[in-house]
Nucleic acid binder design. Structure first.
Length: 558
RNA sequence: GCGCCCAUAGCUCAACAGGAUAGAGCAACACCCUUCUAAGGUGAAGGUUGGGGGUUCGAGUCCCUCUGGGCGCACCA
């Protein structure tokens, strides 16, 4: 669509006293059928001390252009209507849809972005709330790649702390245990610890040995964390979510990095030793959303707390040389992140750009791992695949596990990514398992329809006469195709994958309307046919690329 | 108590850096398969954009306030 803005701005610059840049800043896409491009004249009215409708009329009456059908002045707007054949050819020929077309013009080729995400406690199977983190981040990774970036995806493994020590304690006397058992073990030991204070004491002894480098303890921590990380990543891998690097929190203790950074911090007057002998950062005056921000970074014995280890890790990321450094974090970490960011600035480092997302709520309240009131990602995955299988059975009378996975996992991702990150997602099974309407399957289905048509023809549509595409349905579809590139940049700028689901649904709807009103294969006019084949092949490409940016696959047949 | 985020149709969500008559999906109603995949399309219905003020030519969008929900508020990770 940018090309139309340019076009109109050039016409106006020629026909009026206005500067092209100023015009470009005012032009917009009007609603519905009010035209292709509109110029609101209200700001001009102020400058020129004239009524907006008079300015609009004056501008409109002077304009003639061979590619314009008409120019109307309505209620202070100048509305530009292009000839359909001009729109079709101009927009479709200039539409950038492939990764190559877009990345080579993005000016971002070869840059590197570091993205850290998920980084959940390695204590049990992830629930769908945590998965929101992974899904948003994974989509962003795909968008950056699409624009030509190198991506470096990190996972910070919190292998130090009471939670892990609890699990080590609970499992050390067991013969064997699997990842699947851990959630229940975790719930049980927390329950038990409530009535038996002995447990907590022993857990702290374990933790102490681990931090002090006791080889056997380290081995048993490692064994447990390994089971957790393998179990968690195996689930994410099934969803095609992967990481390039796992960074272990314990490294910062065992390699004595925490002490080194502590020494650096000691040079600042902001660091003080409180009455209990702990090191604390005084963060008053920093942009942190609490009254008297203080960040305690060590225990009484000067050993590190999580905040210090996180500062060390954040410094590593900031100094990695990446052009951008992004972190996806739950909204519960907002204030905490501001505190880490302030500490980073104190050390002369740039904090990460953070993407916060709100929690997933269940119809009867929120999830709690400890209480066991969670919807596990694994359960959602198997439910949604089973539902897909049933639907395939019903429609086609066959069982196909591979198709069911593509359909099911697509629905899972789509249903969570559909909501803007800052909004809570209300998860209910009926909506999540519904494949109709605004869903990934709608897009996948229409993609398959297009592939089916393309497979039935030998006609060469590589050099079509696009001026033949003039119906309202064709034009609406073409306009939406022309928006693909803008959509990708919007996601990139706002770090918001839900814009992709909006786009692909809108695009698919436009295609479906075109498909149901016009024939493609069953027409005599071969020229028109090849133009339409070209149009739908571009549409298929845009659907596929949009879904891929969400981490969703397409199918040639459904 | 203080701070940040959110509130749009019965339900789940849109509305691109304030622009024209606020759009979809689900559910419910009425239609459309001897034609390229009906997992689809069409039509009708559904709204004082949580309440109240303000700024503006123009507010779902910006400001204030109230109500309701989410998330936080050093010595957890």
């Amino acid at each position: 669509m940018n090309i139309l803005f340019e076009y109109v701005a050039n016409i106006l610059a020629k026909n009026t006293q206005l500067e092209k840049q100023q015009i470009l800043s005012m032009l917009e896409v009007p609603a519905q059928d009010k035209g292709d491009i509109a110029l609101p004249c209200f700001k001009l009215a102020k400058e020129m001390r004239l009524a907006p409708n008079i300015i609009a009329e004056n501008i409109a009456k002077d304009i003639t252009d061979e590619n314009l059908q008409k120019v109307e002045a309505v209620a202070g707007f100048v509305n530009f209507f292009f000839k359909p054949e001009f729109l079709a050819e101009t927009l479709l020929l200039n539409a950038k849809i492939t990764q190559e077309e877009i990345s080579t013009n993005s000016g971002m080729l070869g840059k590197t972005v570091l993205i850290e995400h998920t980084s959940i406690n390695p204590n049990a199977s992830p629930h769908i709330g945590r998965a929101r983190n992974s899904l948003i981040a994974d989509s962003l990774v795909r968008v950056f790649k699409f624009l030509g970036w190198n991506t470096d995806v990190h996972y910070f493994v919190n292998d130090v702390g009471k939670q892990i020590a609890m699990l080590v304690y609970a499992t050390q006397k067991m013969q064997s245990f699997t990842f699947a058992d851990l959630l229940q073990i975790y719930i049980d030991i927390n329950e038990e610890a409530k009535t038996n204070p002995q447990i907590e004491q022993e857990v702290f002894v374990l933790l102490n040995k681990f931090e002090n480098g006791d080889k056997d303890t380290i081995a048993s921590f490692n064994k447990l964390v390994d089971v957790c990380i393998k179990g968690q990543t195996e689930i994410f891998n099934r969803l095609n979510i992967t990481w390039d690097k796992f960074d272990y929190e314990s490294k910062y203790i065992h390699e004595n990095i925490t002490n080194k950074i502590l020494e650096e911090l000691k040079k600042s007057p902001k660091l003080f030793e409180d009455e209990n002998g702990r090191y604390v950062l005084d963060q008053r005056g920093e942009p942190i959303g609490i009254e008297e921000p203080m960040l305690v970074i060590t225990r009484q014995d000067k050993t590190s707390l999580y905040a210090l280890r996180d500062i060390c890790y954040s410094l590593d990321k900031a100094r990695s040389g990446a052009d951008r450094n992004i972190l996806v974090l739950g909204e519960d970490q907002k204030v905490y992140f501001q505190q880490i960011a302030a500490a980073m600035r104190l050390l002369g480092a740039e904090p990460a750009e953070v993407v916060h997302y709100s929690f997933v709520l269940l119809p009867d309240g929120k999830m709690s791992t400890r209480k066991g009131t969670v919807v596990l990602l694994e359960d959602f995955m198997s439910e949604v695949v089973q539902k897909a299988n049933e639907a395939i059975m019903e429609k086609r009378g066959i069982v196909d596990q591979e198709i069911a996975k593509v359909v099911g996992y697509g629905a899972l991702k789509y249903s969570i990514l559909k909501s803007s990150p800052e909004k809570n997602v209300l998860f209910d099974w009926a909506t999540a398992l519904n494949f109709n309407g605004d869903s990934s399957l709608y897009a996948q289905y229409n993609y398959a329809r297009i592939q089916s048509i393309l497979s039935k023809t030998d006609l060469d549509y590589s050099t079509p006469n696009l001026t033949l595409l003039t119906t309202p349905e064709e034009i609406a579809l073409i306009k939406q195709l022309a928006n693909f590139e803008t959509m990708v940049y919007n996601v990139y700028e706002k770090l918001n994958p839900s814009l992709i689901t909006n786009y692909v649904f809108s695009l698919t709807t436009k295609f479906s309307q075109f498909y149901s009103t016009q024939n493609i294969l069953n027409i005599e006019d071969k020229q028109l046919q090849s133009a339409r084949l070209y149009l739908i092949s571009k549409t298929a490409e845009a659907i596929k690329n949009s879904l891929n940016l969400l981490g969703i696959d397409v199918l040639n047949q459904l």
